[in-house]
């Protein structure tokens, strides 16, 4: 028998996961839009965020919330590095950066994954912070405090990205480059700098998403791939290119996963997701929320 309790539980769970996936997908969507690069290593960078959080807590007792201060600048720098040392030199040598970047980022993905195995072994790792064993009661439903923190971080981050893209000059420049690279260049936008910032932002948000996810789930160095699949689903569902779309896409995917597990066997949920995605693509080939 299904109870309202279970359904409500599924709903709330879906929002928690969905927000984290949305944040994870936002950066992927950004770099795709601005540079036509399919960053297959995106989830691996998120995983870096997870492991930084774990390490800081275990080695130095640093609170997961404080670790954001370390994750954001570090991943931002990695993003700049990715652009200046890998993507840009490659793009110079070919017209079709999409194909080449897939191999490049796949290689990067392998490197990060195995680096993590070497440094942290391949066992399941769980974050044991001072928030871990606390639950809050929302009506009859009890919710883990870590999930609420994760939701808050993801939501705040998405809002920040949204305002950055829509209210600041640099953010508007990012959107301009996204829509029309040559036009942006002609109108005097520093396309080079904007692209670099996009990569920094993309990886920084990925790192924060990794923090959100490790607050809720255990991680292994190999989990990056299944995260990547969700990134694909969310980014495409929401349409590559809109923070609002990514947020809604993330919530849809999160709710399907979470609510779905109430109604149908776990194994079929992915099937439902994939079939749904293909249907969405066929009806609206550019995603649900794109023009």
């Amino acid at each position: 028998m299904l109870s309202w309790y279970e359904i409500a539980h599924g709903l709330i769970g879906g929002i928690f996961v969905g927000a984290a996936y949305a944040l994870l997908s936002a950066g992927f969507s950004l770099t795709w839009g601005v540079t036509r690069v399919i960053n297959l290593a995106h989830a691996a960078f998120a995983l870096l965020g997870s492991y930084i959080t774990l390490t800081l807590l275990e080695m130095a007792g640093i609170d997961p919330l404080v670790s954001i201060v370390f994750i954001v600048p570090l991943l931002f720098l990695l993003g700049l590095g990715l652009h200046y040392f890998l993507i840009k030199p490659t793009a110079k040598r070919t017209r079709d950066i999409t194909g080449a970047s897939m191999v490049l980022c796949f290689g990067l993905y392998i490197i990060i994954e195995n680096l993590l195995v070497i440094m942290f072994k391949s066992d399941d790792r769980v974050l044991h912070s001072r928030y871990s064993d606390i639950s809050l009661a929302i009506g009859p439903i009890s919710v883990a405090l870590t999930s609420i923190i994760s939701l808050a971080i993801a939501a705040v981050s998405l809002v920040i990205i949204y305002f950055f893209l829509n209210r600041t000059y640099t953010g508007k420049a990012v959107r301009a480059v996204w829509q029309d690279r040559e036009g942006a260049m002609l109108s005097g936008i520093n396309v080079e700098g904007v692209t670099a910032i996009t990569y920094g932002l993309s990886l920084a948000t990925a790192g924060v998403a990794g923090l959100c996810l490790v607050l809720m789930y255990s991680v292994t160095p190999f989990i990056g791939f299944s995260w990547l699949v969700f990134v694909f689903l969310v980014a495409i569902m929401g349409g590559l290119g809109s923070i609002l779309g990514v947020t809604v896409g993330g919530l849809i995917v999160g709710l399907i996963v979470s609510l779905g597990s109430v109604f149908i066997p776990l194994a079929y949920i992915n099937l439902v997701l994939f079939v749904l995605l293909i249907i969405v693509l066929l009806i609206k080939p550019s995603g649900l929320f794109r023009r």
């Binding site: 890998l86 191999v103 490049l104 796949f106 290689g107 990067l108 993905y109 392998i110 490197i111 195995n114 680096l115 070497i118």
Partner: peptide, 8 residues
């Protein structure tokens, strides 16, 4: 890891 490096 070396394999990935070569790819890149």
């Amino acid at each position: 890891l070396i394999y990935g490096l070569i790819l890149v």
